[in-house]
Design a protein around this nucleic acid. Structure first.
Length: 215
DNA sequence: TTCCTGTCGG
DNA sequence: CCGACCGGAA
């Protein structure tokens, strides 16, 4: 599927700005990603700032905080009852098993680190892969809702393809040094043009590369 | 009503 | 594989 790489190159031309690293603390990145689950970016950021300001975001503090206290501060992000439990549990897990140091997991070989992350409460493949890519700098492409939708519409994968299949196709066709950009830009494209509802196909700069499956 | 950088239990 | 979880925005 060589169209994958054509699409990513086109995205990089269209969105001039390059993605630059931001959050270097892997535990904070993990909390960011848990808060972002099925939630829009704006509300996730607000929830993160609330939690950081009121309690502080580190494994020691959050492992001891009550679920209710955590939930109160992250309410705006939605799914707050589940997410508060996940955050507390994952903090406890990291304190107990890794002495509060997530780097002990991230420096493991990719597959091992991935399995270990996914065994943590609240951490599925998407969340694990985000931390692996942006903090551990491993060669993986996290597949989120937007990327799923885009990969199906553009015919990169079959309509019933699962997480691992989409990831494999993208990783195979995109040079490793562009994994971060590809992840970020595909999501941006999913928000701006290839939206779930009413995609802007008529003004899309990828029309010539798109079979428009299921739109 | 639908959707948002998902995960988990049934 | 499917629905529940949840507040906020369009």
């Amino acid at each position: 599927m060589d169209r994958v790489w054509q699409v990513v190159q086109r995205l990089m031309q269209h969105y001039r700005e390059r993605w630059r690293p931001s959050e270097t603390d892997p535990f904070k990145a993990l909390v960011h990603t848990i808060l972002s689950q099925n939630t829009n970016f704006k509300n996730e950021m607000e929830a993160f700032r609330n939690l950081d300001k009121n309690l502080g975001i580190n494994p020691e503090t959050l492992s001891k905080a009550s679920v209710e206290e955590i939930a109160k501060h992250i309410r705006v992000a939605g799914l707050h009852r589940q997410k508060s439990v996940k955050i507390k549990k994952v903090a406890q897990y990291i304190v107990k098993k890794y002495d509060g140091d997530l780097w002990k997991v991230l420096k493991l070989p990719l597959e091992q680190a991935r399995r270990e992350l996914m065994s943590m409460p609240g951490v599925g493949p998407k969340t694990a892969d985000v931390v692996l890519l942006f903090n551990a700098r491993k060669h993986v492409i996290p597949i989120d809702r937007h990327i799923f939708r885009i990969s199906r519409r553009l015919g990169f994968v079959s309509q019933n393809a699962g997480y691992e299949e989409v990831r494999a196709v993208l990783e195979k066709n995109i040079p490793e040094r562009y994994y971060e950009d590809a992840h970020v830009l595909l999501i941006q494209f999913g928000r701006d043009y290839c939206r779930a509802r009413k995609p802007k196909c008529d003004e899309c700069f990828l029309s010539d590369l798109c079979p428009k499956i299921g739109v």
